[in-house]
Amino acid sequence: MSAPAVVLIGPPGAGKTTVGRIVAERLGVDYRDTDSDIERAAGKPIPEIFIDEGEPHFRALEREAVRTALAEHTGVLSLGGGAIMDEGTRAALAGAPVVFLEVALADAVKRVGLDAPRPLLIGNPRARWRELMDQRRPLYTEAARATVPTDGRTPEEVADAVLEALQLRQA
């Protein structure tokens, strides 16, 4: 069975997509994002899935997308911010080269803006982001082989730290 070279986890605004693309390029492998897989399979953006079918339906799609990607993809893989909430997903990540990209609220706001269409941040986005992180941080930490802080770093510096944390050589 194949496995990804790197799996990136973390909240919205951590830089999973940007850093993931850089790490993939440096390793000479493909990049894949499970959120993109879900949108392609559903034929619509994630916020619309939440609105039309609800969060439980989205989480079922996400669980399947993550399992498929973990089984098929050998490059760099980014998971959606909430994928870690699923116990089966956490079990599937056991032993994988998982890196938690940690980000402070202030940096996340700068990167994604809390007015972006993110279903779980509706209402008071800053308060909701803090609540989500209180729930998710222990799970991110538990699933990760390494934690890389992103605050005050360029995406290139974060990519360097990811490669160093996993002791991977660049292509």
Score class of each variant (00 low, 15 high):
residue 29 V to Y: 09
residue 134 D to F: 06
residue 33 D to P: 02
residue 89 T to R: 04
residue 71 A to I: 08
residue 157 E to N: 08
residue 64 E to S: 08
residue 37 D to M: 11
residue 38 I to R: 08
residue 107 D to T: 08
residue 40 R to T: 14
residue 9 I to M: 10
residue 83 A to Y: 05
residue 50 F to M: 13
residue 105 L to S: 02
residue 121 L to H: 09
residue 134 D to I: 11
residue 120 L to P: 07
residue 58 F to I: 09
residue 100 F to Y: 15
residue 134 D to A: 15
residue 116 A to T: 04
residue 75 G to P: 05
residue 110 K to D: 07
residue 125 P to I: 07
residue 124 N to R: 12
residue 3 A to E: 15
residue 78 S to V: 04
residue 121 L to T: 02
residue 131 E to P: 00
residue 133 M to N: 12
residue 32 R to E: 10
residue 9 I to Y: 07
residue 168 L to I: 13
residue 114 L to W: 01
residue 73 H to I: 10
residue 92 A to V: 03
residue 132 L to R: 06
residue 9 I to R: 06
residue 171 A to I: 02
residue 4 P to N: 03
residue 1 M to P: 09
residue 122 I to D: 10
residue 49 I to C: 07
residue 99 V to T: 13
residue 161 A to G: 14
residue 29 V to R: 14
residue 90 R to Q: 10
residue 36 S to I: 09
residue 84 I to A: 02
residue 99 V to H: 11
residue 88 G to A: 13
residue 74 T to G: 13
residue 42 A to M: 11
residue 13 G to Q: 05
residue 60 A to D: 14
residue 86 D to Y: 03
residue 117 P to Q: 06
residue 124 N to M: 00
residue 75 G to T: 10
residue 132 L to G: 02
residue 117 P to F: 03
residue 136 R to N: 09
residue 113 G to Q: 08
residue 153 R to C: 12
residue 46 I to G: 05
residue 131 E to D: 05
residue 156 E to Q: 15
residue 154 T to I: 11
residue 91 A to S: 14
residue 37 D to N: 10
residue 63 R to Q: 09
residue 6 V to P: 04
residue 29 V to T: 14
residue 31 Y to M: 08
residue 26 R to M: 02
residue 137 R to W: 06
residue 108 A to T: 01
residue 73 H to Y: 08
residue 167 Q to I: 06
residue 127 A to L: 08
residue 136 R to T: 09
residue 66 V to K: 10
residue 161 A to C: 13
residue 155 P to F: 07
residue 86 D to G: 08
residue 143 A to R: 05
residue 44 K to F: 00
residue 80 G to C: 09
residue 129 W to T: 05
residue 8 L to M: 03
residue 161 A to I: 13
residue 169 R to L: 14
residue 15 G to L: 07
residue 153 R to Y: 03
residue 1 M to I: 03
residue 162 V to S: 13
